[in-house]
């Protein structure tokens, strides 16, 4: 509860700025609509209004400011409108037994979640295995690490269509697979970096101690390096799962996918329904928040059971 106040304060500031931004963002469109409705405006035509700043338009047409907060297709919807849209496409549909309808964000969220989790599992496995190889082999350290860094400098939007084209050449028709690969591509890196740091975290004296026991390399890995890396692993996993979700959504954008949160964002853009885009964005954020929170909980439980949290 102690943490609630600062969080709520930040939330209130964000909502305040958001509401304040709605009027200037929507005033031109609102005035265009009012003009069609026959209202008296200053200046009178859209062409003339192009020359005037949004602030001046708001000052000269105060009556229309109210309309900017209640538009069907706003440039920037209010948080309330986004919340309503989100409610209508999730909980409301679920209550009516249509949770898995193609119009429901629960359905699209589920599609995205599946690819995210597959990508996360694949990326984590690759990251952990890569880290072990890097820590135990100087050759791999010298050869793999630079490529791992370079891999993250390639824009994923450029890579995603290629992965999808190539995987369809291999006869993979299930869209989950290429999306999971893109997602794993983003997710493995933080896990790799974190695990390398974690596996290397034991102090020199700790390794000397195991040497005095004449412990084998495998015993040193199992009894020292691996448990020492657990806190690092969880920190990386939290970054990794967020990256995996971004990867999946990016994988859904340029590929003509028709389901998934990324597809909803694209379709909302093509059909000019900003509310749908915003609802999908917020749904993605909530999904990411839930996944990170779950991992945080797993971290707390694991570390507590390991006796590492005071």
């Amino acid at each position: 509860m102690r943490n609630a106040l600062p969080i709520l304060t930040v939330l209130a500031v964000i909502l305040g700025v958001w509401y304040a931004a709605v009027a200037p963002m929507n005033i031109r469109v609102a005035l265009d609509q009012a003009q069609r409705g026959g209202a008296e405006l200053v200046p009178a035509t859209a062409l003339e209004r192009q020359e005037v700043s949004v602030w001046a338009l708001m000052l000269r047409n105060p009556v229309q400011i109210g309309e900017t907060y209640a538009m069907d297709r706003p440039r920037l919807p209010t948080p309330g409108q986004v919340a309503t849209e989100l409610w209508n496409t999730t909980a409301d549909m679920a209550l009516n037994g249509r949770a898995m309808s193609k119009r429901s964000l629960i359905y699209h969220g589920w599609i995205t979640l599946q690819s995210t989790l597959w990508g996360f599992a694949l990326g984590t496995a690759l990251g952990v295995l890569g880290a072990v190889a890097i820590v135990y082999s100087r050759v791999v350290d010298m050869s793999l690490m630079p490529w791992a860094i370079i891999s993250q400098t390639v824009p994923i939007v450029a890579l995603a269509p290629m992965i999808i084209v190539l995987s369809s050449q291999l006869g993979i028709t299930d869209r989950t697979v290429p999306k999971a690969i893109i997602s794993a591509y983003l997710c493995y890196f933080p896990v790799l970096v974190g695990m390398v740091k974690g596996l290397r975290s034991p102090a020199h004296a700790q390794l000397d101690l195991l040497k005095t026991y004449n412990a084998s390399g495998f015993q040193a890995f199992l009894k020292l390096r691996l448990p020492a890396s657990v806190p690092y692993l969880f920190t990386s996993l939290k970054v990794g799962i967020a990256a995996a979700l971004v990867g999946t959504i990016v994988g859904e954008l340029p590929t003509g996918a028709i389901s998934g949160l990324g597809a909803r964002i694209l379709i909302g853009d093509q059909f000019g329904t900003p509310l749908a885009i915003w609802a999908a964005l917020v749904a993605a954020a909530i999904l990411a928040g839930a996944l990170v929170t779950l991992l945080d909980l797993a971290q707390r439980i694991t570390l507590k059971r390991m006796g590492m949290q005071a």
Partner: peptide
Amino acid sequence: GYVFQAAGLYPWRTIGGNIRLPLEIM
């Protein structure tokens, strides 16, 4: 048996578990 300047106990093992460490390895 070697005793280092820092106790160097594993934080994820109990005291008993730490003392057991060389015995497990051996």
